[in-house]
Design a protein around this nucleic acid. Structure first.
Length: 417
DNA sequence: TCTGGGGTCCTAGGACCC
DNA sequence: TCTGGGGTCCTAGGACCC
């Protein structure tokens, strides 16, 4: 039997901030999404005040002021770096699948697990400063569930292991609604309720043929997983992305085509760098932008794709396609609040399909991109960049309350006195 | 005034092929 | 009057996740 552990960081973004600013301990803290728009992470104290996940900042404002809540912009450089520290610590214990920025599955099959969960937690806390919870079970879905229980039930001291006795949580399944299961969202919960399935226990005990009929193969797998029969294997090797999206809201409305072009160019450069990093080339490009869907007034949200003559990851080459698409779609007289691009149809760089009419010097293009990536890797992201991405960039996304990038920028290191 | 961003998988249906 | 059977590929849309 395979034994899965799910290790999940507690309130990850808030915990990262607290490592470098201990004054945030025991205070209510929230972290905002891009553009300081919504609340995407909350400390326990903030949750206790009834502040909701995903709540727009302006709606929560009075509550935040009233309770003197600390409000911070996202600091992705910091969180990304702290995440890799946590993951490499976890890698000391067992083979792992990094599932998201703040959680990993570990393969504990055949290991002596007595006290192991607590030991993992203590080590991560001591080495990185980040508190974690651990769930251990014979399937991923159950491990997820145990993790959730471990997190909110102090008596488990941060780790719940049911690998030897999955039935032990039946009473809890019976009192839990089905949408709390990983993979079952609100939509399914509504449809299942119509079939008389409300609790996680009812779902687990449901008739397989009926679930197959109603939910397809996805639902069937969920039921088996809940029964402790693993259907979702561990994936130790990260799979290359099949699409890369880059998009952001603007810090203020954009009405001019040149600013829109800058923003699109900026997204192209981010996405192409990611694409090169994974060693792929893309054949299809999509560009989109839109007005603010929440605002009154005329709406316009165009999107257009094109196939590129040859699969490419060359920023300058993709830029040309992007600018043509943007120009074609742009309409004056609208207040745009967001732009983005998507790259699609990837092949590995080495298997690039040529084109008879391609007169680009491919080796030269590859060397140029390599040089740009190397320079930016050493001297910072925009040390060299396409002029098309703009100089002043007044449309930039807002991060008005971002803390220093303590661990990734020399001039933002924390000071010790 | 102010509302995030980036992914995956599955399915149904249409187009097309022999 | 009567109009097969089996397959693949692609796309759009729905559902989910963090």
């Amino acid at each position: 039997m395979t034994v899965f552990a799910l290790v999940d960081c507690n309130n990850f973004y808030v915990s990262c901030e607290r490592v470098f600013n201990p004054r945030l301990q025991r205070r209510p803290v929230v972290i905002l999404s891009n553009n300081d728009g919504c609340i995407v992470a909350r400390s326990e104290e903030a949750k206790a005040l009834g502040i909701e996940m995903g709540e727009p900042l302006f709606k929560a404002r009075s509550k935040l002021n009233e309770h003197d809540v600390v409000v911070l912009s996202s600091n992705y450089s910091l969180y990304g770096d702290m995440s890799s520290r946590v993951m490499s610590t976890l890698g000391r214990f067992a083979p792992l699948e990094v599932y998201s920025i703040d959680e990993s599955f570990l393969d504990l099959t055949g290991m002596d697990r007595s006290g192991l969960g607590q030991r993992i937690g203590q080590t991560v806390k001591q080495w990185t400063g980040i508190p974690v919870s651990v769930g251990v079970a014979p399937s991923k879905v159950l491990a997820k569930l145990c993790n959730k229980l471990a997190k909110k039930t102090p008596v488990y001291r941060g780790c719940l292991d049911i690998a030897d006795d999955p039935g032990s949580i039946d009473p809890i399944l019976g009192s839990m609604t089905v949408d709390k299961i990983w993979g079952i969202g609100g939509r399914w919960a509504v449809r299942l309720a119509a079939l008389g399935i409300v609790t996680a226990l009812q779902f687990r005990n449901a008739d397989i043929a009926m679930i197959r009929q109603e939910m397809g193969i996805v639902g069937v797998r969920m039921v088996y997983e809940l029964r402790g029969e693993s259907c979702l294997p561990l994936e130790f090797l990260p799979q290359p992305r099949q699409q890369i999206v880059s998009s952001r809201s603007f810090g203020r409305y954009v009405e001019r085509v040149d600013e829109l072009q800058e923003a699109v160019a900026y997204h192209i450069s981010l996405a192409c760098r990611k694409l090169r990093k994974q060693g792929s080339v893309a054949e299809v490009l999509t560009v989109f932008f839109h007005t603010n869907p929440f605002a009154d007034g005329p709406q316009y949200s165009p999107s257009a794709s094109c196939s590129m003559a040859v699969g490419t990851s060359d920023t300058l080459e993709v830029l040309e396609y992007a600018q043509r698409l943007t120009e074609r779609m742009f309409r004056a007289g609208y207040k745009y609040n967001k732009a983005g691009i998507m790259l699609d149809r990837f092949t590995p760089q080495r298997q690039r399909q040529g084109n008879l009419f391609d007169d680009t010097d491919r080796p030269a293009s590859a060397r140029l991109m390599e040089a740009i990536d190397a320079i930016n890797g050493k001297f910072g992201d925009r040390a060299v960049h396409a002029a098309a991405t703009g100089i002043k960039r007044e449309w930039k996304t807002k991060f008005e309350r971002r803390t220093p990038r303590y661990t990734t920028m020399w001039d933002e290191l924390p000071l010790a006195r």
